[in-house]
Computed example of a mutant assay.
Amino acid sequence: MSTFTIFLALIVVVAFLLIVVIMVQNPKGGGLSSSFGGGGTQQLGGVKKTTDFLDKSTWTLATLLLVLILASNIAINRGGDTIDSKALDQDEATTAPLPAPLPATNDDATATPADDSTGK
């Protein structure tokens, strides 16, 4: 298993967790934190602590996702130090040769009025 594959799997997992954490939040104070408003959750820390946890986990997961994406760019197997672009290759001529002109034909269909011998 290559390093890039490991990074790719971690990116997918972190992205999924980030989606779940964002979907649980409600910008008006609802969501998961308000559904835990009664019963034994007041003893666990209350609504404010749940909102703080969701906010911190969102920022942490977003930062982790960005770092994993940037680190996966380093881990991509590039297959050597070859230049794949012909635009960057300086050994080749910069101008392409012009195509050869087509041979002229003397058909009646292509005759011009100056070539017309009837005089009309």
Score class of each variant (00 low, 15 high):
94 T>P: 02
32 L>P: 01
60 T>W: 02
55 D>H: 10
97 P>S: 06
71 A>S: 11
107 D>G: 15
47 V>S: 08
108 D>Q: 11
107 D>Y: 06
68 L>C: 10
62 A>T: 07
79 G>D: 09
42 Q>D: 09
57 S>G: 04
13 V>R: 10
7 F>C: 12
77 N>M: 05
100 A>D: 14
14 V>R: 00
71 A>M: 12
23 M>H: 07
35 S>G: 06
119 G>R: 03
86 K>T: 13
81 D>H: 10
8 L>N: 15
100 A>S: 10
15 A>G: 11
29 G>S: 01
38 G>A: 13
19 I>C: 08
119 G>E: 00
75 A>V: 05
39 G>A: 07
60 T>E: 02
101 P>Q: 04
68 L>I: 04
86 K>I: 13
101 P>D: 02
27 P>D: 05
107 D>E: 15
105 T>Y: 09
6 I>M: 06
70 L>R: 07
81 D>F: 07
60 T>S: 12
25 Q>P: 03
59 W>E: 00
20 V>Y: 04
102 L>I: 11
23 M>R: 09
58 T>V: 03
113 P>H: 03
58 T>K: 01
117 S>I: 12
101 P>L: 04
113 P>Y: 03
81 D>T: 12
116 D>P: 03
113 P>I: 04
81 D>M: 08
64 L>W: 04
57 S>V: 01
106 N>Y: 10
118 T>S: 15
105 T>W: 06
10 L>P: 03
112 T>L: 10
2 S>D: 11
103 P>R: 09
57 S>M: 12
60 T>K: 01
71 A>Y: 06
55 D>E: 13
16 F>K: 00
49 K>Q: 14
64 L>S: 13
41 T>P: 05
82 T>C: 10
34 S>M: 07
62 A>M: 06
119 G>K: 01
36 F>D: 02
30 G>R: 08
106 N>R: 07
7 F>T: 05
63 T>Y: 06
27 P>I: 09
61 L>T: 00
52 D>R: 09
109 A>R: 13
86 K>R: 14
53 F>Y: 08
113 P>K: 05
81 D>R: 08
118 T>G: 15
97 P>T: 00
73 N>V: 15
22 I>V: 14
49 K>D: 08
58 T>Y: 02
54 L>K: 01
60 T>G: 12
56 K>V: 11
73 N>P: 04
92 E>T: 11
54 L>H: 01
61 L>F: 00
45 G>S: 03
78 R>V: 10
15 A>Q: 09
108 D>C: 11
90 Q>G: 09
54 L>P: 00
39 G>P: 02
68 L>G: 04
52 D>K: 08
16 F>L: 14
36 F>M: 14
